[in-house]
Amino acid sequence: MQTLARNGLNRRAKLARWGILGFTSAPLLGAYAYNKGYHIPLLVCPFRSLTGIPCPTCGMTRSFMAVARGDLVQALSYHLFGPALFLVLLAAALHITCEIASNRRIETFYSQGLLNHRLQLLFIASFLGYYSLRLQGLLNSGELATSPLLSSFRQFLLILLPS
């Protein structure tokens, strides 16, 4: 069930919603653009580029692209949280668009859930647990030991500190 607030959004609330809309829609529009063959220059993971170690969100762009194409199995193989996060961002973008269009705050069943600290902690713990399992898999395969040797940071150090 949803309810509309009686008062309209003030200027600060409108600006905040436009910022949230940009934040939530950018990954969705990026996945669409990448699927159409457009590439954003210099869009690389700075953490992996510097260290050679994948960050917790590595694979998320490819997962979003697969979701946008309708390939859920492929999306899950790239990142387990990709499809769920894609849907959350899509719902948030639609929700914020409706709030901007109606000039009113809209209360829904999921609004309170997103503010629940226990659910937030559960999500963070699950996300970091999944990341730990991914790193463990890379460690077992030997890739985690060799990828830092190819990192930009190591290359930079070799230039600064020649043997």
Rank of each mutant, 00 (worst) to 15 (best):
Q2G: 06
T3H: 09
N7D: 14
N7A: 15
G8L: 05
R12Y: 10
K14F: 14
L15P: 02
L15Y: 07
F23S: 09
T24H: 05
T24G: 02
S25V: 04
A31S: 11
N35G: 09
N35I: 00
H39S: 10
H39L: 06
P41R: 00
P41V: 00
L42K: 05
C45I: 03
F47N: 04
F47C: 07
I53W: 08
P54S: 00
P54K: 00
C55H: 07
M60P: 01
S63A: 14
S63K: 03
F64W: 06
R69F: 01
R69K: 13
G70N: 06
V73C: 04
Q74R: 05
Q74Y: 07
L76S: 10
L76K: 15
L76A: 07
S77Y: 08
H79F: 04
G82K: 10
G82D: 06
L85F: 12
F86V: 00
L87E: 10
L89N: 15
A92I: 09
I96S: 02
T97E: 10
T97A: 13
C98I: 09
E99C: 09
I100A: 04
S102R: 13
N103P: 03
R105P: 05
I106M: 09
Q120A: 12
L121A: 15
F123L: 13
A125D: 05
A125N: 09
G129Y: 12
Y130R: 04
Y131S: 01
L135T: 02
L135A: 06
L139S: 11
N140C: 04
L149V: 03
L150I: 01
S151F: 01
S152Q: 10
F156C: 12
L158N: 15
I159V: 15
L160F: 03
L161D: 07
S163L: 12
